[in-house]
């Protein structure tokens, strides 16, 4: 039986007077790829960002309900938020390399958690760049600004930087939407490989991508979860009208 990594109970999110997420209840299985699907603006990204409380960054956001990670409620915990965030690697819609060189982009997360030994850092940097198959491409230019890499390389760098802090969960927000097909494929393949060790939550509106890699699917519409379950079930016989028409590509 699957273990549950993240459980969300009665989650509501408001930005000012706008009700963005409405009564979200779901659970995300461990070491699987969970795909959150739905048309643009339905709250997928917001849900993802509330998992590691990036919503704290915006003072006008109000959250109600519970988000349990490994049984601990992250919204009402006294634990240091940075520790909770370190459990979750984030991959954004577009790569946002930090304004520093390639090496430091990976080493940054390690340094801020207090690891300073150079030899150890170099080894880790190499290890994680190899993990995302970037090492061969960048090993001679580690001191160059990360912004000089191609978009596809940058996205893999961002993945490596996230893995370097040894998370348990990967939160990916349409990670391939700005990439070319080959780079997208590289990321998808990486995810399938990574789910051995990580629980992956992937937001996407690319239906084919969802079908290729999803184990578990959450379908959202207008801030609510319409339907959720194992991927085969949702794709083969959806129960709700809305899910069915979305899967047939009737609306966007």
């Amino acid at each position: 039986m699957n273990n549950t990594k993240i459980t969300v109970k009665n989650l509501d999110l408001m930005i000012g007077k706008h009700h963005i997420l409405k009564d979200i209840n779901t659970s995300i299985p461990e070491k699987k790829i969970t795909v959150i699907m739905g048309p643009s603006g339905c709250g997928k990204t917001t849900l993802l960002k509330s998992f590691n409380r990036l919503t704290d960054l915006y003072p006008e956001v109000r959250l109600n309900g519970q988000i349990m990670i490994d049984g601990k409620d992250v919204l009402h915990t006294r634990e240091d938020i940075t520790k909770i965030r370190k459990k979750m690697g984030l991959l954004a819609q577009r790569p946002y390399p930090l304004p520093m060189n390639i090496y430091n982009n990976i080493a940054y997360g390690l340094r801020i958690s207090g690891r300073k030994r150079k030899v150890w850092l170099s080894k880790r940097v190499e290890f994680y760049l190899k993990q995302v198959s970037l090492w061969e491409e960048v090993k001679d230019r580690l001191k160059e600004p990360a912004a000089r890499l191609s978009i596809g390389q940058q996205q893999r760098l961002c993945l490596a930087r996230g893995l370097a802090v040894e998370p348990e969960i990967i939160l990916a927000d349409e990670p391939t939407s700005s990439l070319d097909p080959i780079s997208s494929q590289a990321i998808e393949e990486k995810f399938i490989e990574l789910k051995q060790r990580y629980s992956i939550v992937l937001v996407t509106h690319i239906l084919r991508q969802a079908k290729r890699i999803a184990d578990h699917v959450i379908f959202m519409y207008l801030g609510r979860i319409v339907e959720q379950g194992p991927a085969e079930e949702i794709f083969n016989n959806p129960k709700k009208e809305i899910t069915m028409s979305y899967l047939k590509g009737k609306f966007y």
Partner: peptide, 12 residues
Amino acid sequence: ELSEASLALGAT
């Protein structure tokens, strides 16, 4: 998103 990236890595 740049700040989010840094925060997500566990930075304060």
